[in-house]
């Protein structure tokens, strides 16, 4: 009986400690950094936009909250008041684009981008904004530019 207790007590303590450690690390977990995240989908701007324009519900099921790597031609690079960059990708002649809100950690990368050149950007897909007036966008957030 005493022998059993000698095994059980440390075992219970270990489980409690592991549980506490797990809870603590879960609680403090930060949203994943895109630089080292594994892409769920690798695609190009035209395909991604096409998927959402064809069937938004289906594309939402497929892409929402997923890490997506998109290759495409840069249309615009802009910076807001807070200094954050937004890069849009898409074909000329189409109003639709992939709108990438850059992670502030990677501002340096965004600064050097030139409209017209082709890049690969990795980010989390947050959905689709269809607007006949402003043009439709597939939105990616927390984006990073992939080194070639």
């Amino acid at each position: 009986m005493k022998k059993n207790l000698k095994i059980i007590v440390p075992l219970v303590l270990l489980i409690v400690a592991l549980g506490a450690w797990y809870a603590y690390s879960e609680y403090n977990r930060k949203p994943a950094n895109m630089e080292n995240a594994k892409a769920d989908f690798v695609t190009n701007a035209a395909t991604l936009i096409g998927a959402f324009e064809e069937n938004e519900v289906k594309a939402n099921q497929q892409y929402l909250d997923k890490v997506v790597e998109v290759e495409g031609a840069i249309r615009t690079v802009s910076q807001d008041d807070a200094g954050l960059y937004t890069v849009t990708m898409g074909d000329d002649g189409s109003l639709s684009s992939v709108r990438c809100s850059m992670d502030s950690v990677f501002n340096e990368q965004a600064r050097s981008l030139v409209p017209g050149s082709t890049v690969s950007i990795r980010g989390v897909c947050t959905g689709f904004m269809a607007d006949p007036l402003l043009g439709s966008d597939v939105t990616l957030v927390r984006c990073t530019i992939l080194k070639k």
Partner: peptide
């Protein structure tokens, strides 16, 4: 205004 709910970023991933 239009906003995508998944575009809201929290400091803690669990909260998000």
């Amino acid at each position: 205004f239009a906003v995508l709910i998944k575009g809201f970023t929290f400091e803690r991933a669990l909260m998000q």
